[in-house]
């Protein structure tokens, strides 16, 4: 586009539980600035047009995972996506993360997301007496879960997964990524415990390899890779091949 953009339309999902029975979309014309992010545009509306607009954000640098939203057909962090990359014509459409209950405007109820995360016991399980200093790990063993530890728990994958649309009991890609993170950790002794949790119809076997989580992840992780590794281990475990 050779023409310099002066302004664009920001179309936002609105829902106020105290006033509305259903959601609607509201559109504002926003002054554009080179390099403007979608989060900046939301803040522009919040400051200049409508202070009742509700949305989550914190760090503004794609590491806290608070501002995950559904932006012009993509699951994304509002602070990371620039307006120029999210335009559909002259409009950027911002909706809350899909399938999760909307509390207000762009804020969704993350209860199930965090409950499912806790279900896989996302902490180191090792009852051996602690050594004098730390539990050592070779650089090679440490590198085995390089991918999983980059997860910022933003909720994009959980909201994108069609297996979770009708069933929030499904652990979801984020929880399975964290199960794999400890499953791959040489210091962790909770393999059997975690396989019990993930080797059922609400765990790895509900993953239909749709790859929406891979498309959605703003940190470019591959949750399907983690899930498929757990799936193979879960099969071996259920067949009695591993103790």
């Amino acid at each position: 586009m050779t023409r310099v953009m002066k302004e664009f339309k920001l179309r936002v999902f609105r829902y106020d539980p105290e006033k509305d029975a259903q959601h609607h979309y509201q559109t504002w014309t926003v002054d554009y600035r080179e390099g403007m992010t979608v989060l900046e545009a939301l803040l522009w509306v919040f400051e200049k047009k409508d202070p009742s607009l509700a949305f989550r954000y914190s760090c503004r640098e794609a590491i806290c995972g608070s501002c995950a939203m559904y932006i012009s057909g993509r699951y994304a962090l509002a602070c990371k996506v620039q307006v120029k990359d999210a335009l559909e014509g002259d409009t950027v459409t911002v909706s809350p993360l899909p399938h999760m209950r909307v509390i207000k405007d762009l804020v969704v109820d993350q209860t199930k997301f965090w409950e499912n995360y806790a279900r896989v016991k996302p902490w180191l399980i090792n009852d051996d007496p602690a050594p004098e200093r730390e539990r050592l790990q070779s650089p090679e063993d440490r590198a085995r879960y390089n991918m999983e530890i980059d997860c910022i728990l933003c909720g994009s994958c959980f909201a994108s997964c069609p297996s979770g649309v009708t069933n929030e009991e499904y652990l979801g890609p984020h929880a399975l990524v964290w199960a794999a993170r400890f499953f791959r950790d040489s210091r962790d002794k909770g393999d059997r415990e975690r396989l019990e949790i993930v080797a059922n119809e609400y765990g790895v076997f509900r993953c239909h390899t749709v790859f929406n989580c891979v498309e959605a992840c703003p940190k470019h992780l591959n949750p399907t890779e983690s899930i498929q590794e757990l799936k193979k281990a879960a099969m071996a475990y259920k067949l009695g091949l591993i103790k």
Binding site: F13, Y15, P17, E18, K19, D20, A21, Q22, H23, Y70, G73, R74, Y75, S95, P96, L97, P98, H99, M100, R101, V102, A159, S160, P162, V165, T209, V210, F211, N212, V214, E215
Partner: peptide
């Protein structure tokens, strides 16, 4: 708009991503 009691029990959710326009290869 007044809040409709019977309808309010049904939570509001965004199902916009089930629009085939936004399907990627895996979804197809």
């Amino acid at each position: 708009m007044a809040k409709v009691d019977s309808a309010s029990n049904r939570p509001v959710r965004n199902y916009g991503d089930l629009n085939p326009r936004y399907f990627r290869t895996g979804m197809w």
